[in-house]
Every structure is written in C-alpha cells, then in structure tokens.
Amino acid sequence: MLRSRISKRSTKTLRLFQLLVLGVIVSVLAKPLVATAYINISTHDRRYLEPVQVPQERVGIVFGAGLLQNGQPTPFLANRITAAAKLYHLDRVQKLLMTGDNSRTDYNEVRSMQEYAHNLGVPMQDITLDYAGFSTYESCYRAHKVFGVHQAIVITQNYHLPRTVYTCDRLGIKTVGLGTPDLELYGWRGMMPDLRREMLANVKALLEIHVTRPRPTFLGDFEGME
C-alpha cells in the first residue's frame, strides 16, 4: 500500500516536471515567434519590393552585410548597394549613408560599399560613410544622433527589412524600406540559418529599443550629412 502511494506521488511529480519543462520550452520558442510577428505587422505598410514604388526621401541608408576574402561585397551586400543605386538614379534618394564595420584596419566594409556604389554611377560626394555601424541598432542610432537623419529609406534583404524599419523608426527616423530578394535567390534551405538568427534578433531588438536603450560602441561628435 505504501509502495503504491509512493509510486503515484512519483508519477505525479514526474508529470508536473514534464509540464514545467514543456512550458519553459514553449515560452522560449514563443518569444521569437511573437516578436517577429509583432515587428512584421507593425511595419507591413512601410515596406516595398520595387524601387519605383518607394516614395522620395533625401537619404537612403545601406546596411553592411560582410565582405568576401578579396574585399568585395558579399552577394547580399552587393544586392543592397545595387538597389540603393537604382533608387539614386530614379531620384528617389539624393544621398546614400553607407553604414558598416571598420573595427579593424584590414577590414573596411563601408569603403568597399562606397566604391561599389560609385562603380554603379553614384557620385562620391553623395555617399556618406558610417564606419561604426556594428549592428542594425547601432547603425540606426548613429544615423539619427551622429548624421542628423530624420527621414530615410532603408535598403536591405526582405527578411531583415521589418526589423530595420522598426528599429530606425523607434530611434527617431521616419522610415520606409526597400527589400531586396533573398528567398527568391537562395530558397528556404539556403536562408534558414539567417531566418533563425533574425527571429532571435527580433527579441533582442525589442529589448534594446524598449528596455535597455544602450549607447552605441562609438558615438562621437555630430557630423551631419551635406
């Protein structure tokens, strides 16, 4: 009889533990899903797929996406710059702000971005470089505080666009965005690592924007854009 009671208590304890573990797992998985859905819904009416659809703004912001070993932009980054150059030639933007990583002397992402855009016909004097755009949050923060941008078109891949529009908008820049192809070019299998990271990044973005509001790695003096 006693053994039976102990067995029932053990079974009940095990079930409660299993439910607790399941609850934790569901909670962890739900946060990225909820954050991603919220950011997507919040920005759906300010995201465009074609350059001709984008309303005119003075500034377009291009976000870094890495360099190849030869120092040239990665395919993701090349697509972003190409789309930004199209906006420029369509008179949708007058100036481009290239924001990316120059944390090492042997790695100058924004200079490579500038050269690529210039080769596509964008004059050097219409390209401003932000050497300390180490993340989406820092790029948006610095665009507003350091470069004095109050309205802008942001250019990046479709999967990254909602978070970019949301972040810049909440940090003081009235923002619309142009998305460049990703799933269409790389498929679900090729994009899955990026999509997973983006869902986690959406949670981090909400915490940074609405809770912690960290200062960028480097802020510096106000520079403005000519």
Results as ranks from 00 to 15, higher is better:
88 Y>F: 15
146 V>W: 01
143 A>M: 05
170 R>S: 08
135 S>A: 07
172 G>A: 13
100 G>R: 01
223 E>P: 06
207 L>E: 12
63 F>S: 01
57 E>D: 08
13 T>S: 07
121 G>W: 14
174 K>C: 04
69 Q>T: 09
207 L>G: 11
203 V>E: 11
84 A>R: 00
26 V>R: 05
171 L>C: 10
212 T>G: 10
22 L>T: 09
181 P>Y: 05
215 R>C: 06
79 N>Y: 02
207 L>F: 14
39 I>S: 03
194 D>P: 02
114 Q>M: 15
204 K>S: 10
88 Y>D: 02
181 P>L: 03
161 L>H: 02
189 R>A: 11
210 H>L: 05
48 Y>G: 06
55 P>D: 09
43 T>I: 10
167 T>N: 07
86 K>R: 13
226 E>W: 14
176 V>M: 12
133 G>A: 06
191 M>W: 11
145 K>D: 10
167 T>C: 08
50 E>H: 14
166 Y>T: 04
205 A>M: 13
58 R>E: 13
86 K>S: 08
81 I>K: 01
38 Y>L: 13
35 A>C: 12
154 V>D: 08
68 L>C: 07
46 R>V: 05
53 Q>F: 06
83 A>Y: 00
42 S>H: 09
200 L>T: 13
24 V>H: 03
190 G>M: 13
134 F>R: 04
7 S>P: 00
225 M>Q: 15
34 V>A: 15
128 T>L: 06
140 C>M: 08
176 V>Y: 09
103 S>F: 08
52 V>E: 15
167 T>K: 04
100 G>D: 01
65 A>V: 02
18 Q>T: 06
16 L>T: 13
121 G>P: 03
121 G>D: 07
171 L>G: 07
51 P>F: 05
223 E>H: 15
110 V>R: 01
142 R>I: 05
28 V>E: 06
58 R>T: 14
188 W>H: 13
112 S>L: 05
171 L>K: 10
137 Y>D: 02
54 V>R: 02
130 D>H: 04
206 L>W: 12
126 D>L: 08
91 D>G: 02
27 S>M: 11
179 G>I: 06
103 S>W: 04
56 Q>S: 10
163 R>Y: 05
168 C>D: 08
150 H>L: 03
134 F>D: 00
150 H>Q: 13
52 V>K: 15
12 K>W: 12
5 R>N: 02
108 N>W: 03
71 G>S: 06
197 R>S: 11
95 K>H: 10
96 L>Y: 02
37 A>K: 11
126 D>V: 06
99 T>Y: 03
43 T>F: 02
208 E>W: 14
37 A>C: 11
193 P>L: 07
78 A>G: 09
136 T>E: 01
53 Q>V: 01
60 G>H: 03
224 G>F: 13
169 D>T: 07
90 L>K: 07
121 G>Q: 10
51 P>N: 07
54 V>M: 09
10 S>D: 04
202 N>A: 07
173 I>F: 09
41 I>P: 00
136 T>V: 03
90 L>M: 14
109 E>R: 03
183 L>M: 14
176 V>K: 10
185 L>N: 14
48 Y>E: 08
